[in-house]
C-alpha cells in the first residue's frame, strides 16, 4: 500500500519522447536545404527609354541561340566570349549590352550570357527577343 502513490505520480515520459522524436525526425527529413539563388536582372525595353537618349551610346551586341553565343556578330566559344567581355568591360563598364535571344534558346543559355556580362562588370543589359 505504501509503494503505490509515488508510482501514480510519475508522468509516462517514454511514450511522449517517442512522439517527440518522431516529430523531430519528420521535420529534419522535410527541411529542404536552401539553394542559394542569384537573381539576374533582365531590363525589358520600356517604351519611354528609346526616346530619351538622342546620342546613341556605344553598345555591345550579343546573340543567344541554343548552345551558341555570338558576340558582335560572330560565334565564339564561351571561354573566348568571357575573355572578350572582360576586356570590353574593363574599357568601359557603362556600355550597354543588347542581348538578343532566339526563341529556341534555353534558359541555361540566357543565364550563361547574363552571367558572363555580370562577371565582366557590365550591368546595363537589355534583353531583346529575336523574331
Amino acid at each position: 500500500m505504501r509503494r503505490k502513490p509515488p508510482e501514480q505520480l510519475a508522468v509516462p515520459m517514454s511514450s511522449m519522447i517517442d512522439i517527440v522524436f518522431l516529430l523531430l525526425i519528420y521535420f529534419i527529413v522535410t527541411a529542404r536545404e536552401d539553394i542559394p539563388e542569384a537573381h539576374l536582372a533582365v531590363n525589358l525595353p520600356a517604351p519611354g527609354m528609346a526616346k530619351s537618349g538622342e546620342v546613341k551610346p556605344k553598345m555591345l551586341e550579343m546573340q543567344v541561340h541554343a548552345n551558341k553565343l555570338y558576340l558582335q556578330g560572330s560565334e565564339k566559344p564561351v571561354a573566348e566570349i568571357a575573355a572578350m567581355l572582360k576586356y570590353l568591360g574593363s574599357l568601359d563598364p557603362d556600355q550597354t549590352v543588347i542581348v538578343q535571344v532566339s526563341m529556341n534558346a534555353r534558359a541555361t543559355d540566357l543565364v550563361t550570357a547574363l552571367d558572363l556580362c555580370r562577371a565582366a562588370g557590365l550591368e546595363k543589359l537589355n534583353v531583346v527577343t529575336l523574331r
Binding site: 539563388e37 539576374l40 533582365v42 531590363n43 526563341m103 534555353r106 541555361t108 540566357l110 527577343t129
Partner: peptide
C-alpha cells in the same frame, strides 16, 4: 534550365504589357 526562351518571352511580354519592367531571372548561384 531547359525551358525554351519562347516560354520565358511570353511571361516577359505579359510583364512588360502590364507596365512591370523590373524582371529578374532566377538562377542557382
Amino acid at each position: 534550365a531547359d525551358t525554351q526562351f519562347r516560354h520565358i518571352d511570353r511571361v516577359m511580354q505579359v510583364a512588360a504589357s502590364t507596365g512591370l519592367y523590373r524582371v529578374r531571372l532566377a538562377a542557382e548561384a
